[in-house]
Nucleic acid binder design. Structure first.
Lengths: 209, 209
DNA sequence: GTCTATATCCTGATAGAC
DNA sequence: GTCTATCAGGATATAGAC
């Protein structure tokens, strides 16, 4: 490659700023200034701000989803926990990298869902979600399709919120909840999600343990 | 009251647009045009765009949190499910109102967390969160403080995502998950959250049911 | 309280020299 | 590929007539 430096520099700066401020609130001027590149270079390399946003997301989400698929396929007669872990762990691993920047961007796009990312969203998550739903229902046959989708949705929400703002937990808990390493966070979230997915459909029927 | 009409008209239009587009992406021009009021009236009545955002949130969040407190206090020796329901139901009830506009704004602010709302956020949720943590740990004594905060965080994420984008569930599930009424959604989320909160700390120790 | 008109600044995007 | 300069328009906010 001749000089991919500028492109990657822009992507890195965009990732950090989108994490801090969101997409709409980040201007190209601010972005290129932090990256130390010329204002016009964004449009030269990416064509538009929206295309830059998509590329920032794509370069991280594609590997994460590829690993999710790979891990799901590698499982033989998986338990519900195996399936949940295959879905959550690749995404949560992103927390440990680059100061958590991409983790927060990832959480943000899940929550913010700008209109121009709608197509992108379905393209990258539609088929994958269906595959995980199928695997979950094979592992837990008494989970009907409707409940499976709802609880997958809850799980994605828990994951996205964790990715985007787990750094606030220490503060709001008054120090009662120091964040540990990412491996422990994965364990906690997997345990929570599996427990939630296994619950019987009506809370009133829950057994006390 | 002489003429609270303009103020409320602005708040209603802002709520709808913030739900659709988020805060940063919504301009005062667009907002006042939809509300059918003059551009200058926002600054006259609220002082600034940020103050308007805070007022949009405050007029909905305060009643919701007041009901949460009231319901928690009304409980005598509550089960974990009682506590979770007292927290989730008042917020989810917002889904049925005004076409779900405020539900999506509420989900958005939980996820988006713009920097200027940081103080607002701690002011409205700090003490309340502590009270619910205490109640949860009384109902489930073997839940340590750290796990309680983490799982409360997961639960808030699941709730916020449900509030903000449950309308997409039907589409991404290919029709397999039609949304029912809000009462059923409450049951599903309460069951999921209680199941998640009750799970043992390490997923590997989970009992098959 | 409501309006018009405008001040001041910032936005994404582009043309064209180098 | 990178730069300067700039376009055309939109942003928040405000001054001042009514």
């Amino acid at each position: 490659m001749p000089a991919p430096e500028t492109k990657d520099t822009i992507l890195d700066a965009a990732e950090a700023l989108f994490a801090e401020q969101g997409f709409a609130a980040t201007s190209l001027r601010q972005l290129t200034q932090r990256a130390g590149v010329n204002l016009a270079s964004v449009n030269y390399h990416f064509g538009s701000k929206e295309a830059l946003v998509k590329e920032v997301l794509r370069r991280r989400i594609e590997p994460i989803n590829a690993e999710r698929r790979r891990r799901l396929e590698a499982l033989d007669a998986p338990s519900l926990e195996d399936v949940v872990r295959a879905f959550l762990e690749p995404a949560l691993r992103a927390i440990g990298h680059r100061g958590g920047g991409m983790a927060r961007v990832f959480g943000r796009v899940t929550a913010e869902q700008p209109a121009f990312l709608r197509e992108f969203f379905f393209e990258h998550f539609g088929a994958l979600a269906q595959r995980f739903i199928d695997a979950m229902r094979t592992a837990a046959p008494d989970l009907d399709a409707r409940a499976a989708w709802l609880r997958m949705h809850f799980t994605v929400g828990a994951m996205a919120h964790t990715l985007q703002s787990s750094h606030m937990l220490t503060e709001i808990s008054g120090g009662a909840c120091e964040l540990g390493d990412e491996a422990e966070l994965v364990e906690q979230l997997v345990a929570y999600a599996v427990g939630g997915l296994r619950a019987s459909a009506r809370a009133g029927e829950e057994q006390q343990r």
